[in-house]
Design a protein around this nucleic acid. Structure first.
Lengths: 258, 258
DNA sequence: AGTCTCAAGACGTCTAGAGGAGTTCGTGCG
DNA sequence: CGCACGAACTCCTCTAGACGTCTTGAGACT
């Protein structure tokens, strides 16, 4: 494998030059997914720099998610993201069925074993952001429903729903088991007419806690999806905050051209 | 500000404890967006550890995108992601108009100055992935159109479109200026009937090159959006690969409930 | 053959420095 | 008053080590 040497005339610092060499080796195909990078000792030997310098170089690639270090074994080139498309979702299906039901339908098609856990339901004050989205007053409380979806035992998504307590109170929405059709069916039972949804999609690096819950390695971002459901009067009935394990999970939307 | 001390009995290493202390201070609100973290010297003094140790702690928060270091000034708590909603897009509008036109309409509503640059058009062989998405044979070439969108001079999105050369050949699609309505209008001029689109959304860490083109700081992921447009016969006519600067750019979709 | 032990090799964490480069701001000079 | 300069402070890069934990595989033992 060709790595080159450090050019002291280059204005980039040595650690960055080393990182670029390694990245180029991956891009060239000298190193493919699963291959082991040269060990730290070998890089020190090759470049004639201190250990912290080669570690900083490798750290760059780890932060980019291109390699993953395994304690005691070595550092390996990672499979490029979104190779596995664990599940896709179609809008229509997603919103006709709710929660685990939609996930199960997808599972049948894609061939994984679906599971859901960590369902917690509580009622309490809302954060300013949720209050804003649900257009609530300062004192109004919300019902919070959180859960985690797994595919073949692997966590792929966490979701937290917020509903105004005034809407959910007295219904099965405040219970762990909402019954068939999920909370959307319950809302319709209660006379609310669901009209449309907005979804805001962004991405960010997960916190250590979120990384733990989704069993993510370093350098992998999560897709953040915030769905708000409105009734025919334009009143927001639910905000659902979803974190998706990005490399494993690709959303797929289908829309008409006009 | 309350930071605590390192607990040698704790099984977490010191640098992680320090990172947790700082993260907790932010979560508690002791430090809010724009605030300066204690300097490295102050953290060394407070915790009684070496410089590399406090740097490693701060590096954790930088990787999470919660703080940003400014050379010579200090390290500052970053605005939480998606506070600025530079632009939102609605499906209908997005696909009736094309490219800069849609971007400009959005600009008018949201109040930024739109711009587009780096438009390059070329024809050549396709990557295996693009060939697969466009259902092309091994020898078929594609027309590649790349551009970058800016809002108030700030890059917010890069996009690369791929069309089968057999579709685009002889039309204005192979020219830098496609004329009014963009490539979708040209495709319709040529008798192709656009039927529907799929969009796959994921996220990943950008490469150094991508970070440069979008002027992103460390620790910020990009949202990757791959749109495929089909005609009424189900033939894929275009694949558009889009990178969005995640924290500044939140997609917004609106869909009917059923 | 199967199991245990141990050493080598890999990455993880940390120390105690050094010099460099960018930013800020006060001070003194013109 | 305006400007140049320098000190102080900040983060950046790097050195040359030390010891730790984890993994693997060779070799000894049963």
């Amino acid at each position: 494998m060709q790595l080159g040497v450090i050019d002291r005339a280059d204005d980039r610092p040595p650690y960055r030059q080393i990182a670029d060499h390694l990245r180029a080796a991956i891009d060239r195909g000298d190193l493919v997914a699963g291959d082991k990078l040269p060990s730290e000792a070998e890089l020190i030997e090759h470049y004639g720099v201190a250990r912290m310098t080669v570690r900083q170089a490798v750290q760059e690639l780890r932060n980019e998610g291109r390699v993953v270090a395994e304690h005691g074994r070595g550092t390996f080139v990672r499979q490029p993201v979104q190779v596995r498309r664990l599940a896709s979702e179609r809008f229509a299906r997603r919103h006709r069925e709710a929660g685990l039901a939609a996930f199960s339908v997808e599972a049948q098609k894609t061939g994984f074993t679906p599971n859901v856990d960590q369902l917690e339901v509580s009622t309490g004050p809302a954060t300013p952001e949720i209050r804003d989205r649900l257009r609530l007053g300062d004192d109004e409380e919300v019902v919070v429903r959180s859960r985690r979806y797994l595919a073949d035992g692997q966590p792929v998504e966490t979701a937290v729903s917020y509903l105004p307590a005034s809407v959910a109170a007295g219904s099965r929405i405040v219970e762990a088991d909402t019954g068939p059709g999920g909370i959307y069916a319950r809302l319709e039972d209660m006379g609310f007419e669901l009209d449309h949804f907005t979804e805001e999609i962004s991405a960010r690096m997960p916190s250590a806690e979120e990384r733990r819950r989704l069993q993510l390695t370093d350098g992998v971002p999560v897709v953040v999806l915030v769905r708000t459901a409105y009734d025919t009067t334009g009143r927001p009935l639910e905000v659902c905050d979803t974190l998706k394990a990005a490399p494993a999970y690709v959303l797929e939307y289908e829309v008409p051209a006009r």
